[in-house]
């Protein structure tokens, strides 16, 4: 069953730039889909459409069968967890625990329930000891895990991860990837980290100039040197040697 259904979505910026042109794809329950493309391909615009920040000029988005619109926006957002590229934008509460609790409390959970869920999740992610810390004091990897906890605590059916490995050192990147791999939710991984896509995703969408120009398994799309080169991308090393570059 489709968790996310994007049907012919187009978006034009007020200055006339056509950022998305008839984008369509589905994400099945539990699947991990990679969205890749060069800079300016429309990836961030698509994330903004999925988050309901931009209203598509054509087409529709449905999450769990609920079509996104002004009246259903809150319901749709409650089903999707967004992890944005810069964790500093996302962590806005005074402590890690309060930040993770923000979503459940805003959704009507009792403080005890929210705290219980948040602590359980923070411990599961290995950052339970940071609960009382000020988010600004965390390392980039810890911030990434804290933002992940902040969305997972709301039990979303779909995770939209915008550059989840950005700003991370190799160890933190590896740690984040292994945690993302273990999640049961459907995931849309929007990234330039093509090796991460190979490791995590079963399907890849290649977006360029607002269109999905290729789709398929990571090996078939990212392994196509001519296709990658035509869209200002490079075949990831992991596909050549079967292991990450080190």
């Amino acid at each position: 069953m489709s968790v996310l259904s994007v049907e012919g979505v187009s978006y034009r910026y007020p200055d006339g730039t056509e950022a998305l042109r008839g984008v369509s794809f589905d994400i099945e329950d539990g699947a991990c889909v990679g969205l890749v493309g060069p800079n300016g391909a429309g990836k961030t615009t698509l994330v903004s459409v999925l988050a309901g920040f931009f209203e598509p000029s054509a087409g529709s988005v449905a999450v769990g069968g609920v079509r996104m619109g002004a009246s259903t926006l809150a319901e749709v957002r409650a089903r999707v967890g967004f992890v944005f590229a810069d964790p500093d934008d996302q962590l806005f509460m005074p402590t890690v625990l309060e930040d993770v609790c923000f979503g459940p409390l805003a959704g009507g959970a009792s403080p005890e329930e929210a705290k219980g869920r948040a602590l359980e999740l923070l411990n599961a992610l290995g950052i339970g000891a940071l609960a009382s810390k000020f988010p600004g004091h965390l390392s980039a990897g810890q911030k990434r895990l804290a933002t992940l906890a902040g969305v997972l605590v709301q039990s979303p059916r779909l995770l939209v991860l915008d550059e989840p490995t950005a700003f991370l050192d190799p160890f933190a990147r590896r740690d984040t990837l292994s945690r993302l791999k273990g999640l049961s939710q459907a995931r849309l991984l929007v990234t330039h980290d093509l090796e991460a896509v190979v490791e995590l995703c079963s399907l890849v969408l290649l977006l360029d100039e607002g269109r999905v120009v290729a789709r398929g398994t990571p090996a078939s799309v990212l392994g196509d040197v001519a296709l990658m080169s035509a869209h200002r991308l490079e075949r990831p090393h992991i596909l050549s040697h079967g292991h990450p570059h080190s």
């Binding site: 957002r77 967004f82 509460m93 923000f102 979503g103 805003a106 403080p111 705290k115």
Partner: peptide, 13 residues
């Protein structure tokens, strides 16, 4: 907004 902000900052306890 995507995490449900509605104009208030709920307190934990």
């Amino acid at each position: 907004k995507v995490r449900g902000f509605d104009g208030s900052f709920p307190a934990l306890s």
